[in-house]
Simulated assay, not measured.
Amino acid sequence: MATTLTALRRQISSAGDLKAVVRTMKASAASAIGQYEQSVTALADYARTVEFGLGVCLRAVDPLGLQRQEPTTDATAVVHAIVFGSDQGLVGRFNEAVVEHALAALSQPSANTKTTVKIWAVGERVEARLADAGIALEGSFAVPGSVELITQLVGQILLNIQLPDSAAKIATQHATLMLFFNRPSALGYSPESQRLLPLDAAWQRALVSQPWPAKQLPEVLGSNATTLQAFVREHLFVSLFRASAESLASENASRLAAMQRADRNIGERLQTLQAQFHQLRQAGIDEELFDVISGFDALSAGD
């Protein structure tokens, strides 16, 4: 009896400690979600400024939009795919979902049978999922642990994927760049894909046609191509930063949901253990009382 009660006490203590850890992780995930969502919101104004600059440069380079057509098929096309995942676990199907989405999109038949796909992973967990799927990765990056480290990650990506060195190549499939990441949604998160390069022709025309917010119209000083290249790289930076921040927000949302389920399960387990403990303890007390009463009755009968 004593051994069973001791075992129950140990289980209740362990469950209580685990519940405290889970609550700490819940608070940490909830706090992280807020900072990453705030970074995406703060980036919106800068992204809009970059789009205005791109529109001005595109208008200066090609006022009529005659050259902003969809890219033609290139027999030596290379597609760079960046898949954002996590370094840590306890995120449910977070990594599986984005890997399945990426593989489904990249496996679609292309008009160019000689297209080479180079996949880069952000996060050890998503890297392992891609390896399990038989994908030979071009490289991998560590998941940033804070908003400040996202800039470093973006710099590493742009340095390693070897983008074209001139603005004249932004409309060719030599510069195809795809992003795959989880985006926060009403259900927690959903896998998304985004093509950064070549620049979408309809999107370029929309940038050129959008009205300037001030009466004084801008003009490009110096080389139009050089300025355009700078704005394209800023657009890539903004897009990669936003994708990473949204992926991190989704990761923490998934972890928060997992911790909430764990907290609920641990609470139910604690209630069950405590009920068993009280029931067993009461049974022990009842047994001891019966022994006392039986002994008293025996002594009384002997007298």
Rank of each mutant, 00 (worst) to 15 (best):
A136H: 08
A30I: 04
K26L: 13
S107E: 10
A249F: 01
T76E: 13
A2E: 14
P191N: 04
I170N: 01
T4Q: 13
Q194H: 12
F181D: 02
Y46N: 08
S166P: 01
W203P: 00
A32R: 13
H235D: 08
A121T: 09
I266A: 07
S140L: 00
T41C: 02
M1D: 09
G89P: 01
I12G: 03
E288K: 09
G139S: 12
A167L: 01
L153G: 03
S110V: 02
S247A: 15
L280A: 12
I150H: 06
K169A: 14
N95V: 00
V50F: 05
R242Q: 15
V154G: 08
L153K: 05
Q67I: 09
I135W: 03
V147K: 03
N112I: 04
R129A: 12
M1E: 10
V83N: 04
L158I: 13
G134K: 03
R261T: 11
R59G: 11
F277P: 04
K26E: 14
V56G: 01
P184D: 05
G65T: 08
A142Y: 03
L299S: 09
P164F: 06
L221R: 12
M178C: 07
I161L: 10
S39L: 02
E100R: 12
R129T: 03
V50Y: 06
Q156E: 15
A20P: 00
D132E: 15
L103Q: 08
A20T: 14
A2Y: 07
H174W: 08
W120I: 01
V117L: 10
A214Q: 12
V22T: 13
M1H: 11
A298H: 08
D200H: 02
L153Y: 06
G134S: 06
F180L: 05
T151P: 00
S247T: 09
A131E: 10
G16F: 07
G123F: 01
Q274P: 01
D286N: 14
A258I: 03
L106Q: 09
G284M: 09
L58V: 06
Q210H: 08
A32P: 00
K215T: 12
S244G: 06
Q204C: 14
A136D: 10
R68P: 00
E251D: 04
L179D: 02
T116Y: 00
I266H: 04
G92R: 12
L236N: 06
A275D: 10
N265V: 03
L103M: 12
S247C: 11
Q88A: 12
L228A: 11
L187A: 11
R281D: 15
L280E: 11
R261V: 10
A30V: 03
E37Q: 15
T4S: 10
E234P: 01
I150P: 03
R264A: 12
L159S: 14
